[in-house]
Each structure stands twice: as C-alpha cells, then as structure tokens.
Nucleic acid binder design. Structure first.
Length: 418
RNA sequence: GUGGCUAUAGCUCAGCAGGCAGAGCACCAGAUUGUGGAUCUGGGUGUCGCGGGUUCAAAUCCCGCUAGCCACCCCA
C-alpha cells in the first residue's frame, strides 16, 4: 500500500478538544446568561443562506467576492455559508413573524460563521460569534443597551481590560452631503494616496478614514469629521447614546475614524478592543446600528442595532489571562473486568450509571495497566470484577482516594456509590 | 494579494562546520506470587514534509514545490 499523508483538518479550521471545552462553555454560557438577563431570547438560524441574501447584505464588496464560501449549485438556488449572522437574523425576524409581535425583538445567537480568509492567530475560516440584535427599535436607548450588554459579557467571562471606541456615521439624510465634503478634501491629495485608496475616494470615501497606509495618516487629521456634519436627528441620537453611556458609567473613546463601508449602516458604530493592546489589534466585539438593512433585504424599512462578539478571540484571551477552569473527570467510576467478562462488566456499568458516570475498560491488558488508566482518568472508584465474582454477581469496590476496598453484590453498588 | 519563520518518533523538540537517527513526554511491560499514584529497569513506535541538485557520503549544503505558524493587507 502506498504511503500517504495522514488526513488533517481543513485549512483554517480547528477542533475544540475536551480539555478546552470548559473554557469554551464558560464563554458561551456567559454570553447566554448576560443576554437573558437583559431580556433577550435565543434564535438559531441556518448556517446556509441564499447567496442573494448575503450579497444584498454585503453588496459587491471584495469581501463577498473573495471570502464567501459558495456552495456548488444544487437545484435552482445558489447557496452560501453565512459569513456573519445579522442578515439571517433580520430575514428570520420577518419570515418568522417576529415583526408581528411586541417591538422591538431582542434576540441573541451563538454559532459558527465562515469566511475564506487567510488563517492566522485569532482568525479562522470557521469561527464562532455571539450575536445580539435589537430589531424594530430605533431609539438611542437600544444602542446604549447593546453596548452595555457587550461590555458586561466581556467583563464577566474575564476578557480583562477593555477599550470601547465609539462613533456615529449619520444616515441617508446627512451622510451623502458629508461624503461630498470628504471627497472634496481628499481630491487634491489623490496623487499621494495609495492605489487602493484612490479607488475608494470615489467609490467608498468613508473607508479612507480607517486606512492604515502609513503615508496617509497625516491626511486624516485634517479631514472633516462626520460627527460635525450630522443632521439634527442623527446629532440628537448621537448625543443621547453618549448621555446614556455616561449615565451608565461606561467609558468610551470617540474615534472619528471608526466607520463601516456599507450603506445600510447608520448612526452608532462601536468596537471593543483588549485594553492592553495598542494599535492594530483585532476587535473582540463590534457592532452598530443598521437601519437600512431590512430594506436592503427587500423587507419593510425597519431599524435595528446589535453587535457580534468573537468567541474564539475571547477564549484565547481568557486562556492567556490564566482563567483557570478545571476539567471534570471523564468518568467517576471505571469497571475493570479481569478476563473475558465484557458482558458482565457492561451490566455492572449499567447498574452504576444510575448514580454516577461510569466507564468500562475492555482492553485485554494487565490489571496494573487498567488501574493506571483509571487513575489518570480521575476515577473516584473502580469496580474490580473477577470470573468468580461475576458468577456470584458480586464485585469488589475500591475507593481510589482512600484505597479502601469492599466486596459486595452488584445490587448494592448504587447505594454504595451514591 | 505581500513578507518572515518553520517542517526529524504519537506529542514537544535536539541533532545542521556533511560521516551508523536522538532526548523528554506519552505509550507498553517488569520490579510487585495479575490492585493505581512515587521510584527504578527494559522496550523506538521513523520515507528526517515532497521532488531534484552538489558530494565518496545529505536530516544537515543548494534549488523548486507543498503544508503549517506568524505578521501585513483585508475583514459584510
């Protein structure tokens, strides 16, 4: 047989092994707890969606073109793996009739997302997000609420010091005029911009503000700030959000360069970063208001605000900050048959499982080896079974911490183990 | 898309002025007349990522490829 490479996981994806699961659970359960405490309900949407839904929510950005996992066409629908959750949640809100219920709908979702990125630390092709969405409510109170919720989650799971950045990017009423001012400012500088930025200048000028090209940094300082050019409604909303955050004692930094590239985003944008990190660190959670998204999907215009938190990054932070989680033993009780007693050992295990997690060592190895294995597993008890015992339906129970042993009948096991 | 680093046992890695492929951990067994942890003893489980080149001789030097990691770019 020709030798071949052993099979490995697909590029950019990873396993969450048993030892890492407690930390993972802590991040997820922390998310669910906080969301419920704020009155949010869980929703689960498919990881596949119609390609068109994702394209409408992402327009024709490079990201959609390059990073979307499209599925081979089956039947008449083009499908893709979801790269983010909000588009699907908004779709489900209408399709499931949540728009008929009390407004707004407060929803949360935890699940995997897929992007064909080049993998690197904290960035995977299948990654997990905690999403919180308020759909059907346009008040500033909701903006502040989801920000507070995001901060509470990161705090409680032990993500450590945080930095919250905040901005407003206006809406369809005031943004176009601001973008004209921005273009006017950058046009004379066009020849000094990076090639990518020259394209953005006419197509998506807002993105010039978060450019990281070193030679463009000095230009940003002189650029008009959108928060100076908000319409009265957006300005009032912006002021209200900040007032609410101040009242809640939530610290933030206004970052006039924090933007979103898509038209349906409106008003509030925010991102949480690890506090110790400087510069270009990936956000732990990012969100904002998307009053134009429902309409982009072809549904009635409906306001919404929310955020997405990266569970992979958060668990990595938890691990590095020494967040200790003790893994529970796989089984409290291990049955060690001495000889060919698989049937009897399985029956004894079945009896023990009524009161404690129980495993059986079926391997034909020495009793010493079985004891070693049971010890490493963290077993609290072992049940030793010899052919003579088995014939009489008796066994020997050993307490692994005290070393104490007692001979007893199988039927006595539940009471002795309980 | 760009760049840097890495690739040797199941795992982590050493070996690299070219000369018989190694350690620790893990695993198996024994000391213990078949009862765990501590200790000791024994056991190597390998196409040195793949393909070429240089050489008497290549894990080691050179070229190419592939994969992984890290960073930049990007990130709905």
């Amino acid at each position: 047989m020709p030798r071949s490479e052993p099979m490995k996981a697909a590029r950019g994806v990873r396993d969450i092994l048993p030892a890492a699961i407690p930390l993972w659970r802590q991040a997820e359960e922390g998310a669910a707890d906080v969301a419920k405490r704020f009155g949010y309900q869980e929703i689960a949407t498919p990881i596949i969606e119609q390609l068109e839904l994702i394209q409408r929510a992402g327009e024709d950005t490079d990201a959609v073109a390059k990073e979307l996992y499209r599925l081979e066409k089956r039947g008449s629908q083009d499908l893709a793996l979801r790269p983010e959750a909000t588009a699907g949640v908004v779709r489900a809100y209408f399709e499931g009739g949540l728009n008929q219920g009390p407004q707004p709908s407060r929803l949360y979702l935890i699940g995997p997302m897929f992007r064909h990125d080049k993998p690197q630390k904290g960035r995977y092709r299948q990654f997990f997000q905690f999403n919180v969405e308020v759909i059907g409510g346009g008040s500033a109170g909701f903006d502040a609420e989801v920000i507070e919720l995001a901060g509470a989650w990161l705090d409680e799971v032990g993500a450590g010091d945080l930095r919250l950045e905040l901005n407003s990017i206006g809406d369809g009423k005031c943004r176009p005029a601001y973008l004209e001012r921005l273009k006017e400012y950058y046009r004379p500088l066009k020849s000094r911009l990076h090639a990518d930025s020259q394209l953005r200048l006419e197509r998506n000028p807002l993105r010039l503000l978060d450019s990281k090209v070193p030679q463009e940094q000095p230009f940003k300082a002189g650029a008009p700030k959108i928060t100076d050019h908000l319409c009265p409604e957006c300005a009032a909303h912006w002021a209200a959000v900040r007032r609410l955050l101040d009242a809640a004692g939530i610290e933030y930094q206004v970052n006039p360069y924090l933007v979103r590239g898509l038209d349906y985003y409106t008003r509030t944008v925010f991102e949480f970063y690890p506090g110790g990190a400087t510069g270009q660190q990936d956000a732990l959670a990012s969100g904002g208001r998307y009053d134009g998204l429902a309409e982009a999907e072809g549904w009635p215009s409906t306001p919404g605000v929310g955020f997405a938190g990266g569970i992979d990054r958060v668990t990595e932070l938890m691990a590095s900050s020494g967040e200790a989680v003790v893994a529970r033993p796989a089984a409290d009780v291990v049955v060690l048959p001495d000889g060919d007693l698989a049937v009897e050992a399985a029956e004894v295990a079945r009896i023990c499982r009524g009161v404690r997690s129980t495993a059986v060592d079926y391997e034909p190895r020495s009793l010493a080896a079985k004891m070693r294995a049971a010890n490493k597993l963290g077993a609290k008890f072992v049940v030793l079974l010899t052919p003579e015992d088995a014939a009489k339906r008796t066994a020997r129970l050993r307490d692994m911490s005290s070393g104490e042993q007692t001979d007893l009948e199988w039927v006595e096991l539940p009471t002795r183990l309980a």
